[in-house]
Amino acid sequence: MNLSQVTVQPAPRPGSSFHQALRILPRPRRAAMFDIYAFCRAVDDIADGAAPPAEKRAALERWREDVHACIDGAGPAHLANLQRDIATFSLARPDFDAVIDGMLMDAQSEPICAPPAATLDLYCDRVASAVGRLSVRVFGLPNDDGILLAHHLGRALQLTNILRDIDEDAGIGRAYLPRELLMEAGIAPGDGGWKAAAIAADPALPQACVRLAGQARACFDEATNVMRGHRGGCVRTPRIMGAVYQALLARMLERGWAGPRDAVRVGSLERLGILLRHAVL
């Protein structure tokens, strides 16, 4: 199987938060966002797959070569749409590279577990803010505010994902909460170093989660401040994404992070209300 051409959904799952947020875009912008989503989904599937690390890394590097070829106007046929999007919206090579570099962090032999805060910041920039930098070009935001929005909203979304997926990540040996917050909460590595299962089961974990949730909320606030200076279609989609994830974060704060942790989601009616508020009203 050629991992560099993993089959992916061409668009987010219908009914998902991202699908609802993207479908309000004009057709060319919506199509470009679906192509970016497909790229991100493909490389994420490689990083999270069961192949040996060396095979994952090789597949991700082939993706890098193919994207570089698209940027040069000579991409493979199966990426013709992405090549068109790159030319139409001036999508930048460093942002695609950053996404792939983030996937390489997840494709290591040793899973990410209690990274230093600086490493977590780098990871968030690569797997989330870099996607945001590609997206804001499609949305049509001015460059400086677009980069700011991508930084803050991307980090807010990724931290929320980390807080949502603690148990799922622990099941594959990953724990993304920074070690500084864990140690402040009284969680220390064992004799064998940091272990994701032990972190997830530690009764002091909620204290670290609340602190990380505070960082996410601060990023949401900064993103809102950036979007407040803009009207119209260029901020509708990121407003919807931000609002859904802020609601998700609020649900988690209400539930807390003490085990056992029941799954938390934003209901379809609430998502519809968010969509109507930002896309129609």
Rank of each mutant, 00 (worst) to 15 (best):
L91M: 09
H152I: 01
E168A: 14
G140H: 06
L177K: 03
T160V: 11
G132A: 05
L141T: 11
P94W: 06
G190P: 08
L134D: 03
L134G: 04
L91R: 11
L177R: 07
L91H: 08
G140I: 05
D101Y: 08
E180W: 08
M105I: 13
G190V: 05
R179N: 09
D165P: 10
A185I: 06
L149P: 01
L91C: 08
Y176S: 02
L104C: 13
F139D: 00
N161K: 05
I187H: 12
L148M: 08
G190R: 11
L134R: 03
S109C: 04
V99T: 12
G132M: 02
R137K: 14
R133F: 12
R164N: 14
I147W: 13
F96G: 02
F139M: 00
A92W: 04
G171E: 15
L163A: 13
G140R: 00
I187K: 10
E168D: 12
T119L: 14
P111I: 05
E110H: 14
A118R: 12
N161A: 06
C124I: 01
L148C: 10
P115N: 14
R137T: 03
D95A: 12
D145L: 04
A114I: 02
Q108T: 15
A92T: 11
V136P: 00
E180F: 08
L148A: 15
P189V: 05
Y176M: 04
M105R: 15
H152V: 01
A114Y: 04
P116K: 01
C124S: 15
E168C: 10
A98T: 02
D145C: 06
L134F: 04
L163C: 12
A98D: 14
G173N: 02
I172N: 06
R133G: 02
D95I: 01
I100L: 15
S135T: 10
D106R: 07
L177I: 15
D169F: 06
